[in-house]
Design a binder for these strands. Structure first.
Length: 664
RNA sequence: GCCGGCUUAGCUCAGAUGGUAGAGCACCUGAUUUGUAAUCAGGGGGCCACGGGUUCGAAUCCUGUAGCCGGCACCA
């Protein structure tokens, strides 16, 4: 007699079913509605196909579209498969590789057949149409276990060199599976999948773009075409996503930077920013804010050279590791032809080379090393608004977010072994207070030792544990990222979440025992002997350029009043009010409010529109009435109506709103 | 750096099939003195990214370079 399997359901009930039963059978037994709605199953917590038989007694939870995270993951994975099937149906000879789900959809990396060019945007509509066909055909997705040899043979027979390569490396110990789409197409895949392509909504996905991607993420390998799509459970979700996508485009800092006249970039200095008066005003406010924060936290600000002899960078290890990303400058005087004024620099073979600093650390160690430091002086916290240059790969440059010249809110804390945890704790608190002031929430990640690194394992163990201890002491949770640390130190990273849910890595603290060693920094301990200090590298904004870019996108250009380049505009309705407008502006200026007047001969509608688009927080409209009564009509950005108030009240309001959060 | 795309006035963009450029906004001038998101009229403005080639003739075709855009790789 065959033994019945006991399947327990989330409601606590237990069903007994014969061997070979599947979650789909249970769903059908419960009711036809559930049978139709079921997309997959969680069997003992593991997400599985509906049609995959139980292997023993189990806890079962059926997954429907109400289990959104699971349902989306399944749908996106299936969209990816359908995408690959569609591309191969349209262009036989296309090689397929991988196609995972992403945060908002899916992609598949493919290689176009030799007979045609790589796929491009123009191909997307045809592929989408073919995908819809496959979805409407409601092809069953069937799991099958294959031997490794059969898989390799299949891929080799079909000229799928990437798939064959991968199959050869799959561990022999694991059960290898394929999924059929109907009876005519299959892909090697761990699964799980929906029961059939018809469970996908043909109107809930959209192919977004194509891009190059390397096979297995290695730039020495073949370049494939990655086809990106966004995929959802229904059309409404897709629409909502596309709207969000447009929203993100509207707040693009490159676009707003031009519209708001904050900065520009140009070919002659690509990757370096030309800050305009309004953009630099934001910078100055941020810098003043950060100085107050750092002064208050016991940092002392220094300024160190832009150019240092390459010897210094060799000693620190940066020249060896990053020379290709550094700007090197020969220490020479170019010949100048007196007549023509033409300079012709020649670099002698024995010329001394200098390099523009790509970071501030070695220079800070040099400052630390001046004189003799006692343990009584520690910790020493040296801060610098350090302007650095890195010759980034050209394809990496992106507006303010990735530049070749940037200024960090940098600092290095030199401390004893025993002070590390409390210094990290203090920094965690400082960073928190800053991010709160800007209205960001964040997640903290701990990046652990990379494969290529300096320093002993014992030191790495200690350094990583100190960071964990500091987080624990501050009652915080974190995620660990193996292999992501810097070559000299593990790091904590602050990942901010902005107003539309995107994340940005900004702040960091790294506990470094390598650089003090390499540059021979020491202090005199209680015992009168020389000791190595630990060096904590840390930044909160990261770089001013990038942080301003993030702020622009976070606030969609509508910066809080304390950061707004122009905090108020006094606009006149009739020219009779001009003298009063100037008087109002003068009074505002006298209390430190950044104000402009607009007395142009234009309609008030025109002025309101223009200053609203310029994202000026407050518009003070004055006409005959206000001039006579000593009032202003205040129109706040985003509001549909205005409020008439006595000038004194308006000044008080603007002063309070324009006060930086740390001074409020 | 790699793959694909793009580059026309300050900005956003039109300019099949080759015949040396156009709109809106912005700017300037004039009129208008206006009550909360575009007043009207006139005017000026372009080495069509840059270099080479094909052609009687190139913004249009070919080619090289640069920058930008979307990714990839990189990110001390």
């Amino acid at each position: 007699m065959t033994k019945l399997l006991k399947i327990s359901l989330p409601d606590g009930s237990v069903r007994e079913v014969p061997q070979g039963s599947t979650p789909a059978d249970i769903a059908a037994a419960i009711g036809p509605g559930l049978a139709k709605a079921a997309l997959a199953a969680r069997v003992n917590g593991e997400l599985r196909d509906l049609g995959r038989p139980f292997e023993g007694d189990a806890e079962l939870a059926l997954v429907t579209s109400r289990d959104e995270a699971d349902a989306l993951e399944l749908a996106r994975h299936d969209y990816a498969h359908v995408l690959a099937e569609a591309v191969q149906a349209l262009w036989p000879g296309t090689q397929i590789t991988f196609g995972p789900a992403t945060d908002d959809g899916f992609y598949y990396d493919v290689k176009a057949p030799e007979s045609r060019e790589p796929f491009g945007m123009d191909d997307l509509p045809a592929i989408e149409e073919k995908m819809r066909e496959i979805i409407r055909a409601d092809k069953p997705l069937r799991r099958e276990v294959w031997s490794r040899e059969d898989l390799i043979a299949k891929w080799e027979a079909e000229g799928e060199v990437f798939k064959a390569e991968w199959a050869k490396e799959l561990p022999g110990t694991e059960e290898l599976t394929v999924y059929w789409s109907g009876n005519d197409w299959l892909d090697m895949c761990r699964g799980p999948h929906l029961p059939s392509t018809g469970k996908l909504d043909p109107d809930a996905f959209k192919l977004m773009r194509t891009a190059g991607a390397y096979w297995r993420g290695d730039q020495n390998n073949a370049q494939l075409t990655r086809i990106y799509g966004t995929g959802w459970l229904n059309k409404k979700q897709l629409q909502a996503h596309l709207t969000r996508f447009e929203e993100a485009a509207k707040r693009d800092h490159r676009k707003l930077g031009r519209e708001m006249d904050l900065f520009h970039l140009q070919e002659e200095a690509h990757g370096s920013v030309f800050w305009h008066p309004k953009g630099y005003r934001i910078w100055r406010e941020l810098e003043a804010y950060m100085r107050r924060k750092m002064d208050g936290a016991g940092y002392r600000e220094i300024k160190t050279p832009q150019l240092m002899d390459v010897r210094q960078w060799t000693q620190s290890g940066h020249w060896g590791k990053y020379a290709q990303n550094m700007f090197a400058v020969p220490d020479i005087v170019p010949d100048v032809d007196e007549e023509s004024g033409v300079a012709s620099p020649k670099v002698a073979d024995d010329a001394a080379w200098m390099a523009i600093k790509p970071m501030n650390c070695p220079a800070h160690v040099m400052v630390f090393k001046q004189g003799i430091t006692s343990y009584r002086d520690l910790p020493i916290r040296l801060g610098e608004m350090g302007c650095c240059h890195r010759n980034e790969p050209h394809g990496a440059l992106h507006g303010l977010m990735r530049v070749r010249q940037f200024t960090q809110d940098d600092a290095h804390i030199f401390c004893t072994e025993g002070q590390v945890v409390s210094e990290v704790q203090a920094f965690i608190a400082l960073a928190d207070s800053v991010y709160r002031d800007f209205g960001f929430t964040y997640d903290i990640k701990l990046a652990l030792r990379p494969e290529k690194r300096f320093g002993s394992d014992a030191d790495w163990d200690k350094a990583e544990q100190e960071l964990r201890d500091a987080l624990t002491a501050n009652g915080l949770e974190w995620e660990e990222l193996p292999g992501e640390g810097a070559f000299y130190a593990p790091k904590l990273e602050w990942h901010l979440t902005d107003a539309i849910g995107r994340t940005w890595q900004v702040g960091t603290i790294q506990s470094d025992r390598v650089l003090p060693e390499r540059l021979d920094a020491h202090y005199i301990g209680e015992d009168g002997e020389k000791h190595r200090p630990v060096m904590l590298h840390r930044a909160i904004f990261g770089s001013y350029e990038r942080f301003i870019g993030i702020l622009i996108e976070h606030f969609a250009g509508k910066l809080p009043a304390w950061l707004a380049p122009v905090q108020a505009v006094v606009a006149t309705i009739v020219s009779d009010a001009d003298p009063y407008a100037e008087d109002v502006a003068a009074q505002l200026r006298a209390v430190g409010i950044r104000v402009e007047t607009d007395t142009r001969n234009e309609k008030i509608n025109y002025k309101v529109r223009e200053h609203s688009l310029a994202k000026v927080p407050h518009l003070l409209v004055v006409g005959k009435r206000e001039a006579e009564e000593g009032t202003v009509a205040v129109r706040t950005l985003g509001a549909e109506h205005q409020k008439v108030m006595p000038l004194a009240e308006a000044i008080a309001m603007l002063r309070s709103e324009g006060t930086p959060p740390d001074l409020a």
